[in-house]
Amino acid sequence: MSSQKNKKLTPIQQEYQAFAKEREPKKRVGRNILRAFFIGGIICTIGQGLQMIFIKYFNFTQTTAGNPATAILIIATVILTGIGAYHKIAQFAGAGTIIPVTGFANTVASAAIEHRSEGFVLGVGGNMFKIAGPVIVYGVFSAFVVALIKITIQWLGGM
């Protein structure tokens, strides 16, 4: 806990939180990192394999093969989310299933499924990007900032 947050707490609250902390199970960070590394790695390897298949058998180039490979991973994630398996894998894999494109597909699909009961417009349409929205907003914004930096450096003759 940051010292910033601690300042807002009374001494009794701080004492209790230390007391409780001793009795809470620790997050198994080492184990989680290893699992994330291997599951995330497996997903990326599958993606790479798909890309190579598209290049070798379907006449895609190095740059264009990424699109169908990603699409297959997304479709597979959406199916796994739909049958209720994805969140069980994710409980095991942690960041391993969140970081690859599969994680993004899962946020959109899970929110869409969840809010189907509120109808297609206000439910599915309105909530589909509930979790994915921030990723898009800040992803696009940071891409914009990076592009500005690149253009500025080029303009100054740096690249």
Partner: peptide, 8 residues
Amino acid sequence: YPNEYGAQ
């Protein structure tokens, strides 16, 4: 979160 969302 949504029930099917894969957060650990």
